[in-house]
Nucleic acid binder design. Structure first.
Lengths: 132, 132
DNA sequence: GCACTTTTGACAATCATTCTCAATACGGTG
DNA sequence: CACCGTATTGAGAATGATTGTCAAAAGTGC
């Protein structure tokens, strides 16, 4: 698989366009932003299609989805291993980080309280060097 | 301060009602749910007021706000120290957990990458004993 | 009670996201 | 290549949470 494929889905030109837009950008973007970007580049893709494609890519684990502070869903291409994000709250620059210790800690805490099928979300926000 | 005060704001009956609704409930609730609850209890409070009150309480650190998986803002009364949540994805039961190790880890990682003014969000989801 | 500021509530307005459904594109098959 | 059945698309309507508006009502200090 390449970095711009469509995640095992039928590779229509719309899906390729969305995957490419994600591949071409560093940080997180909303569905709306991707839709606009594609429009500007002349590869217009319907808004509903952008939403559907992003959801499928996220389900397939091809991209990461998280919520911005105001609850908007934002997406970013990502590696396939489990990881978290360190995001610059000004420019959106993102660093993927891993923390085996955190993974272990969350599972342990959850089990201790009798919770099963544990998952978790962890995002770190800060201001990066260039934005200071 | 008591568990049902209004967080230093002018204590109108609407704010007291919202604070009380939060105090009376275990898990996270959306603004809509609180609005309905108050309506059923006969202490009807305008929806916009519920939203405004919750936002102010959250700003004042009187309640925790987080986003459910579908992006809805949900609120819960909380202790004032920094902590995270272990939430049952079926019944919404919530346990506050602390993890000094995680706090240290996030700061360290962020600094290592040159990020300042670091904050983070961490939520753990699972199925609690009673929902299995 | 009075003057002044804050808060409220009903409703309109936003905005992201989802739904609907007919038109279109795919992919495989003969 | 023509054809068929299914998956996908797009335009626009519908939904639903959240926010804005603004005149009326309530809290505060005097």
């Amino acid at each position: 698989m390449t970095s711009t494929d469509a995640g095992g889905l039928r590779p229509t030109k719309q899906r390729l366009a969305v995957a490419e837009a994600l591949a071409a950008t560093e940080g997180f973007q909303s569905a709306q932003e991707i839709h606009e970007l594609l429009g500007r580049r002349g590869e217009s893709v319907g808004l509903a299609t952008v939403y559907r494609t992003l959801q499928k890519l996220a389900e397939a684990g091809e991209v990461d989805m998280m919520r911005s502070e105001d609850g908007e869903a934002i997406y970013r291409r990502c590696s396939d291993s489990h990881h978290h994000h360190l995001v610059c709250r000004d420019c959106g620059r993102t660093v993927e980080v891993e923390g085996p210790a955190v993974e272990r800690w969350t599972s342990a805490i959850a089990e201790e309280h009798g919770f099963a099928d544990v998952s978790h979300t962890l995002e770190i926000f800060g201001t990066c060097r260039d934005c200071r």
